[in-house]
Every structure is written in structure tokens, then in C-alpha cells.
Computed example of a mutant assay.
Amino acid sequence: MNKRLLLVHAHPDDESIGQGATMARYVAEGVGVTLVTCTGGEMGEILVPELAHLAADQEDGLGEHRRGELANAMKALGVTDHRYLGGFGRYRDSGMQWHPDGHAVAADDVHANAFWNADLTEAATLLVEVVREVRPQVLVTYDEFGGYGHPDHIQAHRVATYAVALAAVPSYRPDLGEAHDVAKVYWGAMSADKVREGLRALRDAGDTTTFEGMEPDGDLPAFMVPDAVLTAAIEATDFAAAKTEALRAHRTQIAVDGPFFALSNNQGANIWGTEYFRIAKGHPGPVGESGLEDDLFAGLG
């Protein structure tokens, strides 16, 4: 089987955080890996002081800069087929704000061209064209909450889900290519058990300030899901370094030595080199030693 994997993400950097090691592993194995990014990430916060002038309320050049960051990240992972939905600039980053409950919601002021405002059928049809061209057996995107509530993540979930359905209908837009049914769809996730292990190691080491307010036995963010609902664990620790390099490429958005990655310092590649998934369409295949699928293509002929 000529294996093909399609990932649908909202902004440059989401792919490297969520599935960077998986992408690198599959590229190394000869799998066709295609990334579709839905926006340019124009509204992201900028962590590099000397690039602050690129902010949306100043020169508004962050999207173009992040375009270069994404290209460098894909070089680190070995991915040669990466695209923007409808072409770069078709949809703008919608921005977000934090809800008092701790999750993201749409900003009060959203650009007219924001992805959050996209017509669902129009955006899904743009992805249908990619699905029918690439013909992936497996597609990866977010869950219905977008992991943590970001409107662009939620919209990416909606667009990917609708596109998978439309792409399989022979009478829908036959001009876009022969119908194709994606066999398996996964939602990216993080293992709550692994995160709790990391938090426990931090606390046992006397670190009470990193992830302050999060405790090993307390509530976790929504994207850290109970292990009982996980379907697949892709062990790609040999590619953790490639993932780290990709993350470093997204320097305006990610501080690899910052608090978010503190778990990595304590748990090594166990946190960032093994990536987890929940199946949303199709049937799980045979499981590995972990009790989960160890290959997203498991069970496919």
C-alpha cells in the first residue's frame, strides 16, 4: 500500500507541537505526508522583541514571517508537501481571547477575512480538492473543541470533517477529481497520564512554580485527554530531535526552553517523542505493546 497521511492545522506551529515527531517518522518511512495550514497565523503573539513591529496592530507582517518559519520547520521534519488552504492569504488568523474559565474563545473584533468567518462549504470544498488529489488513507486534525477552544482550531475541525464527507460523494463537484473516502480520521491529543507523570516529577523535584495551578491529581486542560479514550500512540522518540528543531523554527511563537516544555526536561522524549490520537472515523487496527495502535495505518490493507 502506498501510504499517504494528510494533516489539517490552523496556524503555522500547530503541526510541529501536535504531530512533529509523527510527521518526521512517517517521512523517514517513505509515507507521503501532506500538511494543509488554514491561516498564516497573522494574529499570533510575538515572543521575539526585535520582531514586535510585525504585530497585527503595527506592520501586520507576522503572517508572511511565519510563512518562512513554517517552511523551515517542514525542512526539519522532511515534509516537502505543505500548503495553505486556498493558497497563502486566503484566510486570515482569527485571533482569540481567554475566557474566564481558562479556555480560548473568539476575539471581540474579528477580521472580515478571518477563518472563523469562512463559509463552511466554501472552505471544505477547497480541502476536498486536496483530499481528492492526495487521496490519503489517514487524516489528522483537531477535536470538536479545537483542543483548547481556539476558534481557528474549531473551524479547522469543522472544515476537515465536512471535507472528508464531501470528498467521498461521487456527485459532489466531480470537476475536483474522483471521489475519495478517507479510511481513518484521527484527532490529535495528549495523554493525561503522561502529563500527570511529568507534573508529579516536577513537584517531587521541588518545582512548585512551573505550571502553577496545575497539579498531578487536579484538572487538566481539555486537550490532555483521559488515556481511556486514546486509540493510537505513535512512538517516534528517534525523531524527537527533529521535532525540537521544527519547534525552534517557529521562534516568534515558541520558546522551546520555556515552561510549556518543562515536562520534556523531566521526562525526556517520553512526552514529546510519543504522540497520541483518538480515532474519529474508521476502525482501529491491531494494537501494539502499549495496548494502543502503534501505526495510524494499522488495519488498512
Rank of each mutant, 00 (worst) to 15 (best):
H65Q: 12
N113H: 10
R132P: 05
L202E: 05
P174Y: 02
D219I: 12
I154A: 03
G146M: 10
A240I: 00
L220V: 13
E245H: 12
L120P: 01
T237C: 11
D81Q: 13
F145Q: 14
G68K: 12
Y276G: 08
F223K: 07
G177R: 05
M1H: 10
A168P: 02
G206F: 11
R66N: 01
S290E: 01
Y142E: 02
V229I: 15
G20Q: 10
F260D: 04
F88E: 04
I279T: 11
G61V: 01
P12A: 04
R251N: 13
D13K: 12
A114P: 12
Q19R: 08
M96Q: 07
L166E: 14
I279A: 00
E69T: 03
E215N: 10
T209G: 14
A262D: 00
M74L: 07
G282R: 06
N2T: 15
L85R: 04
Q267N: 02
P170T: 11
G188Q: 05
A163W: 01
V36T: 06
A52G: 02
L54A: 03
P49V: 11
D81C: 05
L126A: 10
D81P: 00
R196S: 07
A255H: 00
E122T: 14
A112N: 01
Q58F: 07
D14E: 08
V131I: 15
A183W: 04
A55R: 14
V159I: 15
T121L: 14
A28P: 07
H250S: 05
V159P: 03
T209N: 13
A10I: 01
T141M: 05
F260M: 09
F211Y: 14
R90P: 05
G285C: 13
A76W: 06
R92W: 02
E129A: 14
T244P: 02
L199K: 03
D14R: 08
K184M: 02
G95A: 11
D193R: 09
Q267A: 10
D14F: 04
D152T: 00
G218A: 05
T274H: 04
E178V: 09
T22P: 03
G213S: 10
T141H: 00
G149W: 04
G63E: 04
A189Q: 09
G44C: 04
V182L: 09
E45M: 09
L127S: 00
I254L: 14
R25A: 08
G218F: 11
G44K: 04
F277Y: 15
D207R: 10
V225H: 07
R173T: 00
K3I: 08
G18S: 12
F277L: 14
Y26G: 05
F277C: 08
E197A: 11
S16G: 06
A232M: 06
H82M: 04
G188I: 00
E45R: 14
G301Y: 10
W272Q: 10
T34E: 13
L51N: 12
H283V: 07
E133P: 04
D295M: 06
A233L: 09
A241L: 08
D13S: 10
V185E: 09
V131R: 00
E59L: 09
D108H: 15
A232Y: 01
A160F: 03
F261Y: 14
T22G: 05
W272V: 00
V225L: 15
D238V: 09
D143L: 05
